[in-house]
């Protein structure tokens, strides 16, 4: 077993884990943060996207022990004082989901985009979503939601 300490959604956490524990397993099984989903388990679908030190990563393709000392943000960390994050609100407003399985990863990915490109074009949004698969919506409303979310984030 290895001891790992990191900050998850602003809280310091320390746990003993097997080195082979994936970050997504650590979040879901050790911390009960089940908003981060496992879709494909082969690094392709993006349902497990979280932020690591402010950048989006696939939590199924990292070990928890690699996150020693890092700041991790999951979908559960976005809403503040009961208010949805502007990107979450935009996904709801623009119906950027149907079954909702890909949504946490989509939202985490979108926020990374907007933090580094405050007013992305539709083309830039579609390119950015290369690592996030949605099997319901055809992406149209997701793109609309991200454009609106970017605007309300101040872009």
């Amino acid at each position: 077993m290895a001891k790992v300490s990191m900050t998850v959604n602003g809280q310091n956490v320390t746990r003993d884990v097997e080195p082979r524990t994936l970050l997504v397993e650590f979040l879901r099984q050790h911390l009960d943060l089940t908003g981060t989903h496992v879709g494909c388990d082969t690094s392709q679908c993006g349902a497990c996207v979280v932020h690591l030190d402010g950048r989006s990563v696939k939590a199924c393709t990292m070990l928890a022990v690699q996150c020693e000392g890092a700041k991790v943000m999951t979908i559960e960390g976005l809403a503040q004082n009961g208010e949805l994050h502007p990107m979450q609100a935009a996904f709801r407003e623009h119906h950027g989901l149907q079954c909702g399985f890909c949504t946490p990863g989509m939202i985490m990915s979108a926020i990374d985009l907007v933090q580094h490109n405050p007013s992305p074009s539709e083309d830039e949004i579609r390119h950015w979503l290369e690592g996030n698969l949605c099997r319901c919506t055809g992406y149209h409303n997701i793109v609309k939601a991200i454009k609106a979310g970017a605007a309300s984030m101040g872009g």
Binding site: L52, S56, V57, K58, T61, M62, D112, W128, E130, G131
Partner: peptide, 9 residues
């Protein structure tokens, strides 16, 4: 290369 999340790692 890859997608944004792969490029971030």
């Amino acid at each position: 290369i890859g997608d944004p999340q792969v490029r971030n790692r």
